[in-house]
Design a protein around this nucleic acid. Structure first.
Lengths: 159, 159
DNA sequence: TGGGATAATATGGGATATCATGGGAATTGA
DNA sequence: TCAATTCCCATGATATCCCATATTATCCCA
């Protein structure tokens, strides 16, 4: 199982080019997957993933009532999605819409979150991370009790 | 079942390299597991584990409401997680973020805690250990509830 | 049981490969 | 033709590989 993990901060040069982190590239290359980006529905960042996630959204729409508000929401995701072509150095070009949506200027932060990743304005991301850590300290960690596999009386993964 | 146990103090050289204790390495090699590190959510240390714990977090996210604060917390864990590649001498390279988070400089202490381990600034770890022992003397031991093999309804092991 | 031989381990340094990044030239499209 | 992209190459920084060495642990045989 290869995942998008860790964070990387890269520069956006004056031509608008942005390197995709080498570990993310190798995940995609290993699967021979193109890269898709779309605007997050809930946060001011871009989401990156491979085709399987796009396919999941399409399938979800097909299985839902086409008049529901949820379908409209999912369609919004798809209509902002774009297949990104990498240049020979592994960089993508962000169009003006993407740049404005995430409020990027000369730097971008990739945050791997497993099956997908996000692209943030670096300072904004770090603020969110600090908030999440503060919350975890006061509220405790989410319980990860998945009950499957060899879950014994293991204590939390954090701490 | 082989576990991460005991403590080891190793040097961080000027290139940022840190030997993984041989007993920890052999646990991972025996399971053919890569090593993952991430920043603890609650303490100033790094956490080390195998892929199964990372997979649990990914699966938990998928099964939760993507707008919840808990998902944000779990995503914070993933976005600090990193698959560590060992060099031919069994060392990892700690990036600047990891070093700064745990406030490491030229030495690091591994503390095995069963299914995972932690990496601490040595003096800080020893201080915490002394505190824990003092607490045990005044408050008594936590009940250990031994003798239950793989309980199904495992209660919160979290202390 | 003792003690020398042997292997494993932690650590360091130099050489090499990879990566992010920038810039110029060629190409495309309106 | 002009502007914007795409291709290609250069470069500095950094990670990775490979080898050396000191120290410690393990083995083996007298």
């Amino acid at each position: 199982m290869d995942l998008f993990l860790s964070t990387f901060e890269h520069r956006v040069d004056k031509k608008g080019r942005l390197s995709v982190p080498a570990p993310f590239r190798s995940v995609l290359e290993r699967r021979r997957d193109p890269l898709y980006l779309f605007k997050s529905l809930t946060e001011p960042c871009l989401e990156g993933c491979g085709p399987e996630r796009i396919g999941q959204i399409v399938d979800a729409i097909d299985s839902m009532d086409s008049l529901s508000a949820e379908v409209a929401t999912l369609q919004t995701m798809l209509s902002s999605a774009q297949e990104m072509k990498l240049d020979s150095e592994g960089r993508i070009m962000l169009n003006a819409d993407f740049m404005a949506f995430a409020e990027l200027n000369d730097a971008a932060l990739y945050a791997g979150i497993g099956r997908s990743f996000q692209i943030w304005l670096p300072d904004r991301y770090r603020g969110r991370e600090a908030e999440a850590r503060a919350r975890a300290k006061t509220n405790g960690l989410p319980s990860l009790r998945l009950g499957r596999t060899n879950s014994t009386s293991s204590d939390n993964g954090g701490s």
